[in-house]
Design a binder for these strands. Structure first.
Lengths: 334, 334
DNA sequence: TTCGCTTCCTAGCACGTGCTAGTTGGGTAG
DNA sequence: CTACCCAACTAGCACGTGCTAGGAAGCGAA
């Protein structure tokens, strides 16, 4: 056919091919309110746009609009997996229905590469966990004004009900089982530090509420013998229950305990967080906390839209977000 | 100060504030070749741009340039973790040095949300694993012409040397240990299917080369008793070594074997792939294959740039990509 | 002086879009 | 017949950038 030549199809192409003006094409394609377009013309434009395979040029739209309609989610790390996937899936869907697109960015702590917000110029940047001042400054310099959580007005995320629920369940579970000397197994991964702070803080507050001593906190590393050292130390100190930052850390604790000749949960009970699939597979299987990722994802999207558009924030009952999953690492088998 | 007002700083602002033309500012900031700018002016421009906090408007640049300078990596799933993170980190860095930015997108199989390539209009889309025809069509409709791997010219990725190396090591390792009846534990996750095909195929070819029978392949699911069923079936059939698609699947096999009362590796040896941290933590620890993620990441970036720019493809020695890590699940303890 | 050449700078186009301000022509009320 | 209105369109601006074409000034050579 005539039109071809490796070139992008623009609205002007559609207009030219039809013998109408570019404005008419724009009005039809955008359903511009306050414009009257005759039905035959409207149909011809739509048909021709379809036929030529017209797609609006994103950069031109962004330039004209002055906004990218992109919402960026920044993760501390791709590692915090599985549940997060459902969570983001749901968020993405909700935003899509509102005409926004969601991009996910896993921050790399040592990267010299340009951060994603710099190349997307998103309308909103949503963090799972707080941003450093440099990061916030970098965003603002790139024209991002809407940042959640905003380092300027620091409402501590320690208080976020979505985060409190899980650690509270962990501590309560061990308490219910009769454990009175608990410890908290943290991760040494700096990427998780903010979420770690929040979870550890929530666990401490729950312990205090139940009249328990403050939890001794130790960082566990993937490599090396820090898990074994923690097990020895805690066991000697009379600790019988370990609250782990997540299931990975819980697995390390369980593994180290068994290798040290302890019985789990007899000598040491361990509970994780997130309910990743491997928690059920491990020997012994690992108790955990399951998160209502889909529900939280929708709420997350609502927060983003609230900030982006000003649309109202729906009510959410946070109590149903987390569910305890009891397995062998706390209640034994049988 | 004077300049403020919630507005973005443009090159025109810098020019106006300095009393020079916009073009001059552009020449300085872009180091435009063939333009001579006096040193004092150059310095003044740079200083003023810095002072005002000027950042080029991404959409305007893209519009002008006709290209987004974005390279999108599409993952089958965020799940295939850890090594991949290093890999992407290295890729991102190499691209950054070449003036490109890398965005990562985890495809969601059931998502109705708009795919990321539609909103970024990247120059290149790189897949880890092949694309479906619909996906490729969707990309092309959005103006993406450079797609790797391109479904049009299907060079089977089964042959990719980066993928062959790992499974070959797995099979050879079990063979070296005297195992003659092997099986392949696949994943039931459809997201991994292409990578799964490649790894399973490579394992089969290695087995054939060593004169072994074809490996029985079974899909293992995270939930349910498929792992236990596979263990029973294979043990009864005389299989003594299991090659697993990845460490997660390996962990499920090891867990199921132990729960079935078998000894690992006495009755059943299991080897995983990727060397995730949990492989070392599991009881027994899980043998695996470690990947030179950083090196592969750089090579990946080179391929992307080759397609984007036409710059030459460096040579790579693929033999050093994969390393065997022998642990208790194949060689026992001690 | 006049021409050419170099240095240093400016005017303004093009990119594709969304949309405001305006034009045309037919119908209808006065 | 004039005045006015309204449906149905078009002309063209603005967004911020990269860059080409061109202009002004200085300076050496003929």
């Amino acid at each position: 056919m005539g039109e071809n030549a490796s070139k992008r199809v623009t609205a002007a192409d559609v207009a030219r091919s039809l013998g109408v003006s570019r404005a008419t094409v724009g009005f039809v394609l955008n359903n511009t309110p306050g414009q009257t377009i005759s039905e035959p013309t409207r149909r011809r434009v739509l048909a021709e746009a379809e036929r030529l395979g017209y797609r609006p040029h994103r950069a031109a739209q962004d330039l004209r609009r002055g906004s990218s309609k992109i919402i960026l989610v920044v993760l501390p790390d791709l590692q915090m997996e599985y549940r997060l996937r459902q969570y983001l899936e749901e968020t993405s869907l909700a935003l899509d229905e509102a005409g926004y697109s969601l991009a996910v960015y896993a921050r790399q702590p040592v990267s010299r590469a340009r951060p994603l917000w710099e190349l997307l110029t998103p309308d909103v940047v949503l963090g799972i966990g707080p941003f450093s001042d440099e990061e916030a400054a970098s965003m603002r310099a790139c024209g991002v004004t809407k940042i959640i959580p905003d380092p300027g007005q620091s409402e501590t995320m320690d208080e976020a009900p979505t985060i409190i629920a899980g650690p509270a369940l962990q501590v309560e579970h061990l308490h219910d089982l009769g454990h009175r000397h608990l410890a908290f197994a943290a991760t040494a991964d700096p990427r998780a530090s903010s979420l770690l702070q929040a979870r550890a803080g929530a666990a401490q507050r729950t312990a205090a509420r139940l009249g328990l001593d403050p939890l001794d906190v130790r960082a566990i590393e993937y490599r090396g013998d820090s898990a074994a050292a923690a097990v020895r130390h805690w066991h000697k100190a009379g600790v019988t229950g370990v609250v782990a930052y997540n299931d990975d850390v819980a697995a390390m604790m369980v593994g180290a305990a068994i290798r040290a000749g302890l019985s789990v949960p007899g000598d040491l009970a361990v509970i994780g967080h997130d309910d990743i699939p491997l928690a059920a597979v491990f020997v012994p299987s690992i108790s955990s906390v399951s998160i209502d990722a889909a529900g939280l994802g929708r709420y997350f999207a609502a927060v983003a839209l609230h900030v982006a558009d000003g649309r109202p924030l729906p009510h959410r009952d946070f109590d149903s977000d987390a569910t305890l999953v009891a397995r062998e690492s706390t209640v034994g088998n049988g």
